[in-house]
């Protein structure tokens, strides 16, 4: 999941996998991300404040899940001309920090005329439960 290469449209095939990549989101990252985004809710800062809201403890903000899945796609695109046109996410269940997670992606559609690619993305826990699911659209320039 590094972005050194340039993905070429001609390389892309339906069924191609992005990842899987194993991650664990630490509480320091949750706090830093929330601070960087100006999200001041206690549920992203402190276990006690989160519990006061009825949560089991600090939770990972949906925006961070979206950012991780966006990065999964932009790293796959690399430094070439393709660009992330759209991403949609559904947060099906809480993502908790300090749990092992896996980022998954699959190319599901390639349109040669519009040079557009559709990708399924999701975050899964160790029980195989998909906590965050989404889709992304990538477009490649005609000159790439």
């Amino acid at each position: 999941m590094t972005a050194a290469s340039e993905r070429q449209f001609a390389q892309v095939t339906i069924g191609e996998a992005l990842g899987p990549f194993e991650i664990t989101i630490g509480k320091p990252l949750v706090r830093r991300y929330a601070a960087a985004c100006g999200m001041d809710s206690g549920r992203f800062r402190d276990d006690g404040e989160a519990r006061a809201e009825g949560l089991p403890g600090m939770i990972v903000p949906g925006n961070l899940s979206l950012s991780l899945l966006s990065k999964l796609v932009t790293d796959w695109i690399g430094s070439g001309g393709g660009h992330l046109k759209r991403i949609g996410t559904t947060y099906r269940s809480m993502v908790l920090p300090e749990h092992r997670l896996t980022l998954h992606g699959f190319v599901t559609h390639v349109d040669s005329d519009s040079r557009a690619v559709e990708i399924d993305v999701w975050i899964e826990n160790d029980d195989g439960e998909r906590l965050v699911i989404g889709t992304a659209s990538v477009e490649f320039p005609t000159t790439a």
Partner: peptide
Amino acid sequence: FRPRRAVPRRAEPVPGQ
């Protein structure tokens, strides 16, 4: 037809770790 759970293949450096 669900695949049996497999151990993830590659570890990804995560932000903040």
